[in-house]
């Protein structure tokens, strides 16, 4: 069974009179890993940002669980669809302070369940003795894992990742992707990741959506795409 989590209908996006996305029709199946791949400027990040309404499409409609995302309160939508950015943004204070932010935004209280904290840390591949560490002291790779853990604190069912490995060295990047794959397996989380490196698609074993010049040129299961990976 392949339930649809997010679906785009004729979605277009124009910025400063330039058409960045043209008439996109796309389905993201629930619990799957989807990889948006393509050259720089293809519109990958723009597309990703439309999904949790960090940006608005110029035309078309996006549905989440069969409901127009404009009809879902935006704050709730962003909690259900978490996002990890290219450059990890760490807030002041300890790892624990960082992880408490989603909860305190919702409730104005800092009393987060310790178990939830440890759970999020472990799921994102951080040791649980990191809790009291100053977040700014972490390595870049650890910071990126922390932003994943922080997004998990909202208990989302979709995680958007915008080139999460671009600030990391190759080895650290691969380790992060392995953790993300585990996340997908453990939580059944729908993952939508932007990258321009096909190798990452292989690690995540996901469905590849190839975007060029704002148009989808191919959608394929990962095995097929490797046959002619050089062409991307």
């Amino acid at each position: 069974m392949n339930k649809t989590k997010i679906e785009l209908y004729n979605v277009g996006k124009t910025k400063n009179r330039i058409k960045i996305l043209k008439d996109i029709n796309l389905r993201f199946g629930s619990g799957k890993i989807h990889i948006l791949i393509g050259p720089s400027g293809a519109g990958k990040t723009t597309l990703l940002r439309l999904l949790n309404r960090m940006d608005e499409p110029s035309s078309g409609k996006i549905e989440y669980d069969g409901k127009d995302i404009k009809d879902i309160p935006v704050l709730e939508l962003r909690r259900r669809i978490g996002m990890v950015f290219q450059i990890p943004v760490i807030f002041d204070g300890t790892v624990k302070n960082n992880l408490s932010v989603p909860y305190s935004l919702r409730t104005n209280s800092n009393h987060v369940n310790e178990e939830d904290l440890i759970n999020a840390l472990e799921l994102s591949g951080l040791r649980n003795d990191f809790l009291e560490r100053r977040a700014s002291d972490l390595s870049v790779g650890e910071k990126q894992r922390l932003t994943v853990a922080r997004a998990l604190m909202n208990k989302p069912d979709v995680l958007l990742l915008d080139e999460p490995t671009s600030a990391l060295d190759h080895f650290t990047g691969i380790k992060l992707l392995e953790s993300i794959k585990k996340l997908n397996e453990a939580l059944g989380l729908t993952i939508i990741m932007v990258t321009h490196q096909l190798e990452y698609a292989r690690i995540l074993d996901g469905r590849v959506i190839n975007l060029v010049n704002g148009t989808i040129v191919r959608v394929e299961e990962v095995e097929d795409s490797f046959l002619d990976s050089e062409s991307i």
Binding site: N52, M54, L75, E76, R78, R79, G82, M83, F85, I87, V89, F91, V101, P102, L105, R106, T147, R150, A151, N154
Partner: peptide, 10 residues
């Protein structure tokens, strides 16, 4: 960037 990180968390 920080503001967007907050917004993305709801």
């Amino acid at each position: 960037l920080e503001i967007e990180a907050y917004l993305a968390l709801g």
